[in-house]
Design a protein around this nucleic acid. Structure first.
Length: 410
RNA sequence: GGGUGGUUUCCCGAGUGGCCAAAGGGGACAGACUGUAAAUCUGCUGCAUCUUGCUUCGAUGGUUCGAAUCCAUCACCACCCA
């Protein structure tokens, strides 16, 4: 079975421009493919994860990955967000974010000079100095507005109240131009992207054909990983699930996957883990309580991929200790209070807020009033409860069903 | 550029002088039930020194005993016409 067939069986491929050609190319390890990332934050998140996995798979099969960061497009930002200040991104921040991306990506794919080694490019290199007149003459003429408006991506936005700005429309030209440049400069012959990018990607292939007369630049989209209720994967109440351990701890990362819906587990294992398909197939018939095992496998495998085996073990141990009893409690998520914090005793509400389990003391009070707060397994129902230093020799705070933290004083 | 309508607490959205910390829904959070799932039911949802106090309804200023509600100016947004 070739890599292409494997991708299909894992449910990763949504659409392809020329299936036969792409299969041949990819299976032979002759593709130089690119995927774009917008550097809107200083860490990649779960939404990017699938793209990373795909790059890794293809690289292992001998293909050459090109990671494109949108330093040029990211400069302007997506204007569809309302009052957000995404346009405030300066070159420094973008460059910093690109650096962070590269470091994180290096965990998955190998960068270097070899034939199948990955390279990273920044579209700022060609977009920032673009001359509008030249661009319109060389690229703009090849785009037909009637056709563009027929694209799904635009159709939706046309119906929306705010309408569609010229910038948003231009995005397609910029992305198409990226592909064209990479095709000419780096020999890039395949573009990957989320399924929502399909029309932009096609535009790239079209542009290359129109400008060069060559018919060998292909596009392929990845199935968007959505939950069974249709919402995006990787969002929690606290925001995105990050790959950076400073922003989302390995324990929280593990827990995120441990808690996916029943209907999403197998799909996630197939799409995101590197377990061989032979091992996954039997799991597809699992149901009911048995699925919890699959969730554990999913959580463990992904934590291992992102944070390493050691962290994955720790997260698993901590989870066992908290939920199943018996695991090693040494690995629980921990919070440190200073001597000064506890000098005069510290109220339970303050501890909850400090632990990040509540944004305000009112919120902490609410959880407590409703019986959702325990310390070492004992329910705390008086919001005025005060703890002193000696109490923290052994202190595990629990809020709600799933939030635990071990509190220590240093 | 002209005309009209709008800006309300996390989101949608009611409120058009006191009964408004502000209906209803969604989401979030907590409880029950469970499998660390889903569905369902219940509670809860501005802040705090919490039977009380303080600060909110685009911004500023004004009218009034009293304003989210009335007036003025400004800012922003949407729709229609150019």
């Amino acid at each position: 079975m070739g890599i292409y067939e494997e991708l299909v069986e894992r449910g990763l491929i949504a659409q392809v421009t020329d299936e036969a050609k792409v299969r041949e190319l990819v299976n032979a390890g002759k593709a130089t493919f690119y995927i774009g990332f917008d550097p809107t934050a200083d860490s990649l998140h779960v939404g990017h994860f699938m793209a990373l996995c795909l790059m890794k798979r293809l690289q292992e099969a001998g293909n050459k990955p090109v990671a494109l960061v949108g330093g040029g497009t990211g400069m302007i930002g997506d204007p569809s967000g309302r009052t957000d200040m995404r346009s405030m991104m300066t070159n420094d921040i973008i460059d910093h974010n690109c650096d962070c991306f590269r470091k994180q990506m290096a965990r998955f794919i190998h960068f270097g000079e070899g034939a199948s080694d990955a390279m990273m490019v920044n579209n700022a290199d060609w977009l920032r100095d673009l001359n509008f007149m030249n661009f319109m003459r060389e690229v703009g003429v090849h785009f037909n507005v009637n056709n563009m408006l027929r694209a799904r991506a635009y159709e939706n936005r046309m119906a929306r109240e705010g309408g569609l700005t010229f910038f948003e429309m231009s995005y397609m030209l910029l992305q198409a131009y990226d592909f064209y440049r990479l095709y000419c400069d780096k020999g890039c012959n395949l573009q990957f992207g989320g399924d929502d990018q399909w029309s932009n990607m096609l535009a790239g292939s079209d542009l290359i054909r129109k400008k060069t007369g060559h018919d060998d630049a292909y596009a392929m989209t990845i199935t968007l990983l959505t939950k069974s209720d249709g919402t995006k994967m990787g969002k929690t109440s606290g925001g995105a699930v990050w790959l950076d351990p400073e922003k989302t701890s390995p324990y929280d990362f593990y827990q995120y996957w441990r808690n996916v819906d029943d209907g999403d587990v197998i799909k996630c294992i197939k799409m995101l883990t590197f377990l061989p398909l032979e091992e996954i197939r039997p799991m597809e018939s699992w149901e009911g309580e048995k699925l919890n095992e699959a969730k554990d496998i999913l959580a463990y495998e992904l934590t291992k991929l992102v944070h390493g085996e050691q962290e994955a073990e720790k997260a698993r141990e901590a989870s066992k200790a908290l939920f199943a009893g018996g695991g090693d409690s040494a690995n629980l998520p921990q919070m440190t209070l200073s001597e000064a914090d506890v000098a005069d005793g510290i109220g339970i509400l303050d501890i909850i807020v400090k632990a990040g389990f509540a944004a305000t003391k009112n919120e902490a009070r609410r959880a407590l009033t409703q019986g959702g707060v325990t310390v070492n397994g004992d329910k705390v129902d008086d919001p005025k409860t005060v703890y002193e230093k000696k109490d923290f020799a052994d202190f595990v705070l629990k809020k709600g069903k799933k939030k635990f933290v071990k509190v220590v004083v240093e």
